[in-house]
Design a protein around this nucleic acid. Structure first.
Lengths: 341, 341
DNA sequence: CTCAACGTTCAAAGCGCTTTGGAGGCTTCG
DNA sequence: CGAAGCCTCCAAAGCGCTTTGAACGTTGAG
C-alpha cells in the first residue's frame, strides 16, 4: 500500500496524509488521528527510496570499512559497530558499510559524499595527516570523528584521553621503581599513538628521568607483532622490567613472549595494557589478571552515532569535542620492579 | 550534473543517454562512445536514489547485525564482513547493516524485506529452528545462508564441513590413544554445533567406543566460558586427556585452565581447535602451536556475497549448496595420550 | 455587511532515473 | 517503386514521496 492508495482510502489528498504522518502543523488533530489510525491499520510504510529522492536525505549513516586496516586492528570493530548500530537504529537510521582498501579509501569517501547514499559519515582512527578529513571538509560534507583529529577546530569528535591514560600508567610504573620501560604502541601515523607516546614521555620528564629509558615501538597492534618485539627486547641483557601495551591483543603477545623466556609476570615483568573492553577478551580473565587503562569502545560507538545524527539534524560541526577520561585499573600484572641483578 | 543536463549537453534524449550508459543494445556504438566519454568528462554519476525508485532495486545487500549475538560470538564477524564487503564492492553493491537485538531480530528482517532497502539478505549462523528462514521464505524475499539451514531444500547456502572436521579431529585423537575426550561446542540450537556434535559421535561409534566417553558441553564460545568448563573438567579425578575446541577463543580459555592447573600441553592434555582464520589470532602463534581444523571464514564471506548477488541477478534459490572441506592441520598441541595413572 | 485573516485542505509540480510505445530514416526485397 | 523491416532515437509516462502555491470555508474585526 502506498501513499496514494491510503489517501484515496481516506478521501483525502496525498498532501494531507503525508503531512499528517510527518507531524506537520497545518493539519487538524482530528484528521491526523484518523490518518495515523488508518496507516496503522493498513500497515502503511512509506517507501524509503521515494522519500529519499524527494527529500534528498538518505536517512542513513556511513561507516567506511577499511578491510585491511580493520582486520589488523580489531575485533574491536565489532564492538564499536555494535555501539553505533544501537543508537542509529533507535532513530531509524540505516548504517551503510562501504568497504575499501587503503588505496581507494579516499575515493570511497568521495563517492559517499557525492552520491547522497548517506547523510553523514563517521570516521575512525584519524591520522596525523588525514586526507579523508581534508576531502570531507572541502566537500562540506557532514562528518564526525571517532578519535582526535590532527586539527580539531571546527570538527565534532569524541576521543578518549589517550594522553592521560598513558601518562598515568607510565607514572605508576615509575613509582613502582621501573626504569627500563617498553612501550608497544600503534602505528606512528595515528593520532592516538602520538598522544600515547606524548603521555609516556611526559611521565618520564615529570619524574626527572631521561626519556631514552623509554623504549618505544610503533607497529600494527597484533598479538604476533607484539610477541616478536617483546621477545626481542626481553632477550636483551638490559631487558625492560615493564611493558606498556597498546591493546589487549598486544598484551597477549607479550605474555606469550614472557612465558617462553621463563619470565614470570608480575615478578620479573610488569604489564599494563590499554583495554577497550572487548567482551571476548576480558582483561580480568587473563592469568595474571591484567592491569589496564580502561575505556569502553562500545560506549564511544553509541556516542559517536549520536553526534552523527545530531549533525544531520543541523548541529554545527565542532559543537562536540569530548575527551573521555580513562581509568587506571590495577590488577595482578604489575608489581614493584625486580631488584637490580 | 544529472541525466537531463547531460542529455541536453549532448543534444540527445534522456532515453538514449540512459541506455547508452547502461549498456542497452538499441543504441549505436558511435553514440555510446560519445555518451560514455561525455559522462566521464563531466563526472556524471547517476543518482542511486532515483535509480532505486525507478527500478525498485536497491543495489544493496543486507546483513542483520545481531549485536548481542555477534559480540559474544565473534571477532570473526569482522573477518566475515570483510569478505562480504570485498565482493559486493566490486559489483557496486552497498552493504546495509541492520542492527537488532535477539528479540526484535525477526521484525528487523521483516522490515528489510518489505521496505525495499535491500535486494537480498544474508543470514548467518542458522539455527535448528529458524524463524528468520521461515519468514523470508514466506515473504518470498531473496536470501542466502551462511551455514547449514535446518531444511536445506530450495535454499542457497554455503557451509563448511563441520561434521567431517570434527569427525576427523576426533578420530585423530582416538588414534592417539585418547579415550576421555571433552568437546566444548557452541550453543546447541545452532546447526553447526549439531553437525560438530554428530561428527564427534560418529568417530566414537566408528572406533567401537561407547560415546559416554565423549564429554560434550554446549555454550557461547567465549574464552571465559571455555575456561570455566575446562577448569572444572580438568580438576576431576577422571579428567579428559584431550579437548576439542569450537574456536580459537575457546582454545585460549582451555590453555589458561590447563596452565593454572599445571598441566602441560600436549604432554598432559591434547588440544584441537577449529580455526576460522582470524588474523588477530593465528593458531600458529600460540604456545604450543595449535592443532586445528581450518577453514577461512573470510573466503566464506566472499562466496556468500557472490551467491547473494547471483540471487539478485535472478538465480533460483537452492541452486548453490556448497560444503567446503575442512583441513586438519596437525601442530604441536596434540600428542599421544598420557599413560594411565 | 465586507474584507482580511486564518485554519485546513488540495492539485500539481517536482526529485532523477527507467522504460514503454512510437516515430523517423534507411535498407532490403518482392 | 512501394511496403516491410530494421536500426536509432525520442517523448512521455511513471516510480512514491515531499512541497509549493492556491483554494476553500470559517471567523472576527471594522
Amino acid at each position: 500500500m502506498n501513499l496514494k492508495e491510503l489517501a484515496a482510502e481516506l478521501h483525502l489528498s496525498q498532501t494531507t496524509v503525508s503531512r499528517a504522518l510527518n507531524g506537520y502543523p497545518e493539519v487538524s488533530e482530528k484528521t491526523r488521528e484518523i490518518v495515523l489510525a488508518a496507516a496503522q491499520r493498513f500497515g502503511y510504510r512509506p517507501s524509503p527510496a521515494a522519500r529519499r529522492l524527494a527529500t534528498g536525505r538518505a536517512h542513513a549513516l556511513g561507516v567506511v570499512f577499511n578491510a585491511e586496516r580493520n582486520v589488523l586492528m580489531d575485533p574491536l570493530f565489532v564492538e564499536y559497530l555494535a555501539g553505533v548500530a544501537e543508537t542509529s537504529a533507535k532513530q531509524g537510521f540505516d548504517i551503510l558499510i562501504s568497504p575499501s582498501t587503503p588505496s581507494d579509501e579516499i575515493v570511497t569517501f568521495g563517492r559517499l559524499a557525492r552520491d547522497g547514499t548517506v547523510d553523514v559519515v563517521i570516521l575512525s582512527a584519524p591520522q596525523t595527516v588525514d586526507a579523508r578529513i581534508s576531502l570531507l571538509s572541502e566537500l562540506k560534507f557532514p562528518f564526525v570523528v571517532h578519535g582526535r583529529p590532527p586539527e580539531p577546530a571546527g570538527i565534532s569528535y569524541i576521543d578518549i584521553d589517550n594522553f592521560g591514560a598513558f601518562q598515568q600508567a607510565t607514572s605508576f610504573l615509575i613509582q613502582l621503581g621501573h626504569r627500563r620501560i617498553m612501550l608497544i604502541n600503534g602505528e606512528e601515523h595515528f593520532t592516538f599513538a602520538q598522544d600515547r607516546s606524548r603521555g609516556a614521555a611526559i611521565a618520564f620528564a615529570a619524574a626527572g628521568l631521561p626519556n631514552d629509558m623509554l623504549d618505544e615501538h610503533f607497529m600494527p597492534m597484533t598479538a604476533e607483532n607484539a610477541y616478536r618485539s617483546a621477545r626481542q627486547a626481553l632477550e636483551r641483557e638490559e631487558r625492560p622490567t615493564a611493558i606498556l601495551c597498546g591493546s589487549i591483543l598486544v598484551a597477549l603477545g607479550v605474555l606469550r613472549a614472557a612465558a617462553e623466556l621463563g619470565l614470570e609476570v608480575p615478578r620479573d615483568l610488569s604489564i599494563i595494557a590499554h583495554d577497550d573492553e572487548m567482551p571476548a577478551f576480558p582483561a580480568d580473565q587473563f592469568h595474571p589478571q591484567l592491569t589496564t587503562t580502561r575505556s569502553s569502545i562500545r560506549a564511544a560507538g553509541t556516542r559517536v552515532a549520536e553526534m552523527a545524527l545530531a549533525r544531520v539534524a543541523g548541529q554545527k560541526p565542532g559543537t562536540v569535542a569530548e575527551v573521555w577520561p580513562v581509568q587506571l585499573i590495577v590488577r595482578g600484572s604489575t608489581a614493584a620492579a625486580p631488584e637490580r641483578g
